[in-house]
Amino acid sequence: MARLVFYHHPQAENFSLKFSSASVAEILSQREQSDESTKLIGYPFETPVYVLYEGESEIESAQDIDFDQEWLSDRIRDLPRAGQVVAFRLVELLEAAVDVRDEDEFRLYKEFEPQKIQQALDHVSWGAPLPTVAGEVMSNLILRHSLPNANHRTGIAMLQFCIESVEPDFEMPRTHVDDDTWREWVDPYIVDSKRLITVRRNNLRFKQLEELNVDLVERKDGIQIRLAEFELDMHWREALSEYAEQHESHCTDFAQSVLERAERDDLLDRQGPTKQEFITYLEDGLVERDFREMF
């Protein structure tokens, strides 16, 4: 039977794996050195494994979302105009997702970090072929993880807007969560994306688990990561770069799949938008849009 440990503590999803050991003394020493709230789990394998989990913030209900205009303006006033526009649209998308989904099931896992939105925009190859630009927009927004939840769903929406900025008549294939077709072709992209970004941030922790003969790590939503399928033995800075490149390639493949499913092969070789063209579309082309229809 595979030896499996949880990435998020099973009773507290805001606590994530920070350290593992076969030694009780070592795990207790790490706990004493931690400045965060901690929890421990001992996994009763033939050779036991002890895992330390740390939590940095409390999980809040979606009912606590209150991104009013004044609050948001104060948070983004120092961003360049492009970052401000994308931040406003991302918040609108988040609020639409919450409105469509059951609020009791929609949780806020972290603080809103709008400064990361500008970082995402700075890493896009603007003016490259459309699948590349759209995929990189999606990938970099997901990698920076600026919203307290729904970063994948809002990332897909931004990919759609990127395509529409070049072809306003583009019709997105259905990606609603209650659609069986969505689960067939979109969900695998999201699941693999979550695997990549989890390994990207934790290669050394996962290498430590691998050395303890752990086979699988399971994050929330039941997503399992088979450690043998990933290269873990590298410096953490190298892992950040390597897995960011893999994630961008993954999202570019998704953008190409979107265009093919929409039967718009004519857009595969079309030049993608410049940053200004994309921002202009977000400002002027979405004024009357009801974002709830996207979720």
Rank of each mutant, 00 (worst) to 15 (best):
A2I: 08
L4D: 06
Q11A: 09
N14A: 08
S20G: 09
S20D: 03
S21N: 04
A22D: 02
S23Q: 01
I27M: 02
E36T: 08
L40E: 02
E58H: 14
A62E: 04
Q69R: 14
S73A: 15
R77L: 09
D78Y: 14
P80C: 11
V91G: 05
L93W: 11
V100D: 05
R101W: 02
D102S: 13
E105N: 13
Y109M: 12
K110S: 10
E111D: 12
P114M: 10
A128D: 10
T132P: 00
T132A: 10
S139N: 02
R144W: 06
R144N: 05
N151D: 00
A157Y: 07
M158D: 01
I163D: 04
E164S: 09
D187H: 13
R195E: 07
R195P: 02
L196G: 07
I197P: 00
T198D: 01
R200E: 08
R201S: 04
N203W: 00
L209E: 00
L212P: 03
R219A: 09
K220V: 10
Q224T: 15
I225V: 09
F230T: 08
L232C: 04
H235S: 09
E242I: 01
H250R: 13
A255M: 02
V258I: 14
R264S: 04
T274M: 06
E277Y: 05
F278S: 01
L282F: 09
L282I: 01
G285D: 09
D290N: 15
F291T: 11
E293R: 14
E293S: 15
M294A: 12
